[in-house]
Design a protein around this nucleic acid. Sequence first.
DNA 1: TAGGATTGTGGAAGCGTTTGCAGGCGTATG
DNA 2: CATACGCCTGCAAACGCTTCCACAATCCTA
Lengths: 340, 340
Amino acid sequence: MSGIEDVASLAGVSKATVSRALSGRGYVSSETRTRVTEAAQSLGYVVSSSASSLVTGRTSNVGVIIPVINQWFFGSIIEGVERALLDRGYDLMLYNLTKSHAERTRVFEYFLVRKRVDAVIAVTLEITPEEAEQLLALGKPIAGIGGPLAGIPTLGIDDVEAARLATEHLLLLGHRDIMHVGGDLDEQMDFHVHTKRLKGYLQALEAAGIRYDEKSFVPTHFDIPGGYRAGKQILGDPRRRPTAIFAAADEVAIGIILAARELGLSVPEDLSVIGIDNHPLAEMFGLTSIEQRPDEQGELAVDWVIRQLEEPGWMPPTEHAYLPATLIIRSSTGRPRRTS
Amino acid sequence: MSGIEDVASLAGVSKATVSRALSGRGYVSSETRTRVTEAAQSLGYVVSSSASSLVTGRTSNVGVIIPVINQWFFGSIIEGVERALLDRGYDLMLYNLTKSHAERTRVFEYFLVRKRVDAVIAVTLEITPEEAEQLLALGKPIAGIGGPLAGIPTLGIDDVEAARLATEHLLLLGHRDIMHVGGDLDEQMDFHVHTKRLKGYLQALEAAGIRYDEKSFVPTHFDIPGGYRAGKQILGDPRRRPTAIFAAADEVAIGIILAARELGLSVPEDLSVIGIDNHPLAEMFGLTSIEQRPDEQGELAVDWVIRQLEEPGWMPPTEHAYLPATLIIRSSTGRPRRTS
DNA sequence: TAGGATTGTGGAAGCGTTTGCAGGCGTATG
DNA sequence: CATACGCCTGCAAACGCTTCCACAATCCTA
């Protein structure tokens, strides 16, 4: 492994000049620059990032804290974040905080603090006030996907609004008997997504003058099997069968559609189903959905933290940015067959 | 931010002793150790990893190169790797190499080399000889998931064997007319998985004395929609309908099942379907499958590289470790209705 | 043509750790 | 009682860069 010294002597300049030539900071004549570059090239020299971050105080790393990896929403965020970071010359340190509280503490108190990252992106992190405190105390740019969360800049779709949009679509089609299958309110892993989507649903119902029957909300797991089970349960009893279901996520919606099919119900003739996400599978199932783009959310979060890093004094435009969530109509929703 | 100096003076010892006390290397009386620990605690001191890696030459980072994130197999690997790394006190730097060749080169030549990682785990990476060369030239432990790949230690299931197992299961049930829906041979993203699974299928057919008709292999995308399209195409024509299909991945198999249902065929009465993976959705669809555990593959890869790092001279037991892939029988496979 | 601004380069001082070496002390060994 | 050895600690030298400062040379501009 050759050091900067070797490059310097091969190029016939000082270490200082090599550093300037390679980093592009400060004045270097273009002639020396090429000489240095060639010398570095021929020696296979690359700067030691530990040495350079020791003096500059920057690591070129961004930490990403995420509760799950293997789910479309979260995977897409990571992809977006990774892409954006790599584009700007930063590396991504991944922390999966799905597990024990012990590990969580360790990540917070130890890893993140240990001068290893320049900034932090926290994804739908149910964060305690102390933890938020800690993050802020790092003095490093932070962005949250999800939220809003007091004190740290966050971004994401407006979950209440998205849920209302979805429910309103069903109402507009003439449905009056609409159930909501959402996440379990007790096992919130994030910024109360489940509660918010339920809220949007309730708001829409109320605006339409429909009385809410608490049996109309069915909590389940946020995946296809969860939707399937809920669907089987709801649709199994013909007397208590709604004309439409608003599922809090596309995967849940798809599970419901599968359950409906199995019970011999046609969608949308016997049952309209709408979800949120515009999941890659939505198209195949003809699922009407509210689109959101987690990869773009990741990119925006990166933009926020990197700009704070590179443009001193820059701040995210708002405490919380509400991203667009638009209705995509497919074939899983239609007018109700029987009007109640 | 307080440095080691502050801790030293607060504890009334030298920097050297603080370093030894905190790192656990060298002799330190237990009394001073606690004094130092408390001092560090009260000052909120954490060592600067750049400073320490500058002198030790280790970063406590492991780089993971992976072509996709948002797919069950790959997501699970990342989860396994992350868990194992964090357990051992290492951090994970994620490189998603799905994109342009330019970016690929950049990662190889720049990021990985730049003294940023102690070891590399490459997941199903279609790697050129020069790239393998480069990786080895780093002089850092490397493990590949997938393979085998000459020169670097790899691990994974035996794809040929898994495919044969799957096909044999169908043969054993009495099927003679078995089609294979696999990946597109031209768009291999990895260690020729598609070719291998096709090969295992052919081997099983041959051993059973069944002549292979090249129309019996249908390539498609490796996901549910891909399987669905292939299924529609294959099953749409009643005259050319097999009694069983071996899908190269569970997601493809699920797509086929959905297509079959839509065409009014029952599984397994009219059509048996088997896949590979034991994907989380397999159970819901009653899908018979060959199980593999990507998360465990990730853990093993971590074990390999970390042991090389921490036990000088240690080497992975073999060039390539074949992990178990076991048949899980569910309800998507059964005896053929009509014997051909 | 003088003087300031701009450009280009080198010397040297760190950045915050780890670790080799040396020395001091206490205890076991001959 | 002298010697050896194990334990504990401090000093100071790296580790490989970046950047401040000084200085020189060149270029404008008045």
